[in-house]
């Protein structure tokens, strides 16, 4: 049996390689935000379950965006929910504004973890799968659900004693579609993305 070849570290910057912020990164951030707006809006409208969308594929866009485009994906993570929540009628402006830090962390955790532990975005090894699943999906959604349910509680949109149940519903409900969609996108599209100039090896370039 042939020994599987160890894939090269996609995050490594080659000697002499210059990583600079270009218009391409800016455009990809806007594109990811646009995709997030569409996916988030249609996701919320397709399976409307109030504020706790049991089907919000937007987290997959957030996680994958930060893996491929670093902080540019992080920017998209908190900008697109502002627009998609307004368009879908799932959350008003003040609530969406308070969601911003939660959305940013929920999106960036995957990008940070994949870089920190040197994981391949094409999910080639067991480590890549474990890091993306545990940190990028389970932990990220746990943080997002905790932040989101606290926000709803602050705005009196849920009763205080229902917060643990809302948190659990939010967390489990978002984790499943995020994992399915995130894995599909990383497996199928990462090989293309990492060859483009706009792929971000560090955090901004």
């Amino acid at each position: 049996m042939a020994t599987p070849m160890k894939s090269p570290n996609v995050w490594a910057v080659a000697p002499g390689e210059k990583r600079i912020v270009t218009a391409g990164h800016f455009v990809m951030a806007a594109l990811f935000t646009g995709i997030g707006v569409v996916v988030g809006t249609f996701g919320s409208l397709a399976v409307p379950l109030g504020f706790v969308s049991a089907f919000w594929p937007g987290q997959a866009i957030q996680a994958v965006g930060s893996v491929w485009y670093g902080m540019w994906g992080g920017v998209a993570s908190f900008v697109f929910p502002l627009i998609s929540n307004a368009l879908s009628g799932s959350a008003p402006l003040p609530v969406s504004l308070v969601y911003i830090p939660g959305n940013f962390v929920q999106g960036m955790l995957a990008g940070w973890a994949m870089r920190k532990f040197g994981c391949d975005p094409r999910l080639r090894s067991k480590k890549d799968w474990v890091v993306f699943t545990v940190v990028g999906v389970i932990l990220a959604n746990a943080f997002g659900a905790a932040w989101g349910s606290t926000t709803l509680r602050i705005f009196h949109l849920i009763s205080p004693s229902s917060q643990p149940v809302v948190f659990a519903g939010w967390w489990i409900g978002n984790t499943v579609p995020s994992w399915i969609l995130g894995v599909l996108m990383l497996k199928l599209i990462s090989p293309m993305v990492i060859r483009t100039n706009s792929f971000v090896k560090r955090y901004w370039a």
Partner: peptide, 25 residues
Amino acid sequence: RRIQLYAMYMVPMLAIALRRGDEIT
């Protein structure tokens, strides 16, 4: 089934996005 359907939307949409990103850049 709806979740699966969304996965089917995502892949072509992202592929279009990458091409469009290059064109806009």
